[in-house]
Design a protein around this nucleic acid. Sequence first.
DNA 1: CTGTTAGCGCGTTCAT
DNA 2: ATGAACGCGCTAACAG
Lengths: 348, 348
Amino acid sequence: MTENRKLTLKDIARELNISISTASRALKGHPDISDETIRIVKEYALKHNYVPNVLAVNFRKNRTFNIGLIVPELVHHFFSTVISGAIDAAKKKGYNVIVSQSNDILQDEVTACRTFLASSVDGLLISISNETFEGKHMLDFINEGKPVIQFDKITDQLDTPKVIVDDFEGAYQAVKHLIDEGYDKIAHLRGRSEVKNANERALGYEKALKDFKREFQPEWIKECKLINEEEGYVFTKELMESENPPNAIFCITDLVALGVIKYLKKAGINIPQQVGVMGFSNWKLAEIVNPSLSSVDQHGYQIGVTATEMLIEKIQNHDIESHETVEIKTNLVVRDSTRLSKNEFGNI
Amino acid sequence: MTENRKLTLKDIARELNISISTASRALKGHPDISDETIRIVKEYALKHNYVPNVLAVNFRKNRTFNIGLIVPELVHHFFSTVISGAIDAAKKKGYNVIVSQSNDILQDEVTACRTFLASSVDGLLISISNETFEGKHMLDFINEGKPVIQFDKITDQLDTPKVIVDDFEGAYQAVKHLIDEGYDKIAHLRGRSEVKNANERALGYEKALKDFKREFQPEWIKECKLINEEEGYVFTKELMESENPPNAIFCITDLVALGVIKYLKKAGINIPQQVGVMGFSNWKLAEIVNPSLSSVDQHGYQIGVTATEMLIEKIQNHDIESHETVEIKTNLVVRDSTRLSKNEFGNI
DNA sequence: CTGTTAGCGCGTTCAT
DNA sequence: ATGAACGCGCTAACAG
């Protein structure tokens, strides 16, 4: 309604009979300016509710205090947790977060990058799509002097700082837990071989089997393409109907584990007595499903915070060269689906 | 690496021996400019990959093509769905979305508003916190000529356009379904009486009971303060141990329903045979829980899309006056927890 | 200590 | 059909 034009430096300079630059400097307590002038200007500014025009400042300084964040999917427990961490960390440093999603489609990711690049962010946080392998679109970004940090789903083809989950160790610990509980025939529903995270988890799985000298069967490894419930269901059926069925199944992610559980229940196979089930990611569903699902927590919030803090630091130091990788440790969460030894409450 | 300064209008003007304004106009195909010049300039621009400096343009035009989005919680199925819709809709119109969360704390919401206002968004989408009642911080926004649209969790104290779920009708249909299935003693775990959505749902519940002349008992209405699993559990225990226990429970949200289900299972009460359970929101958990939970889908994605489209339209028309309210229809999703009549598969 | 001046990159009169 | 010139609001180098 009262569309009162905003007060500018010029206005307050005119009103106070000083020059614009004096006003500008006074406002930021520049040492050149007398305490008296500073006091007067600040008082006037406060009283008349002066707010610097951020557009002008950003234009002048050639930066926006916005950072771009691209994830494959926004409606996804892990990624929304990461975003939450990123937003909170950014806020603390005075940055905004502009969020975009690729839907795991390379073209969408490229477009999002271009938009961010053209439009206005000071740096980029990205978790790449399943279709991204080299990532020259991100290179464009770096070439303009804007730092890029990859997190979670990354490509080694692109040399940037990275914040990743220790998938190998997480998988190793998960499988070790299964072994400790007494399971000795452990299958793995893995992800696509082109995806680094999937490979790391598979390697952790194999290493644990090897270290503890448990049976290894290539037929016990199934590659999920879509990483959904359906695949968990179908592969479990295959596994359980085979000559040599496993007695535990380690899944690439909780959603797949859900399919596993559905099949086992349908087939009347007791979890965890006859077959143990281990997920990965520790989604909300892990506590909800029946029996509750053991899983590996990836500390998404922490990943978001760490990646954002790193990015902002690089932005502020104009550091486009360093390429350190930070690994966030995972955390095994044991629930009913693998608790062979003692099961206090039974399945409710 | 090759930190090549970006090409500006000035550069291309100098290179082509024309004036800056000619270059500027040629680039946007201004009718004053000869086709020949336009061709040459455009060709040069394309070849040398000219990209207008968005910061400068925005500064000049006093807008940012960013919209602010504030939700109580980001890590929340419904809200992340809304955000997803908002981002997709904004992208189509060439806008970015800056996301922030209030954590249901008024102070955080106010701060987020201030940041957005000062920093640079052209408009605001907001779903208010549980602590927000009047919302003068949003008024600040409007006073600067920037449109605000409230969605889902709104306050009528602030006169803005709104996009809301038809909570009343959703609740009415949910309870009607319970009645149709044969339940005749229906309780309601409602939300806080200060929250509009909670009231609407409670009204829908009461109206349905009245219309179909079913028993109404004030003791069957319990007010959840925190809207969590725990409350669902505790209130259900109370209800079921009372003199006159209900045989169906309609919950303010799926999370509460989860607590309800947990108690009933623990108490050995069969769902849906002895007691039917109805949620609200249709989270992912509704399909995962056992038995699967009937719920009311709120079409979060559509809410995000609609609110965003409305906002952008207002931004572009400098429309700060209109205050229409759009109601997005809900959709009842029937699952096992209320399927008394026929239950094909049984609970798996 | 303070004021003058000169841009940042772009859009937009106003001349020609 | 084109160019010169100005200004958006702010910062900063340079003078005094």
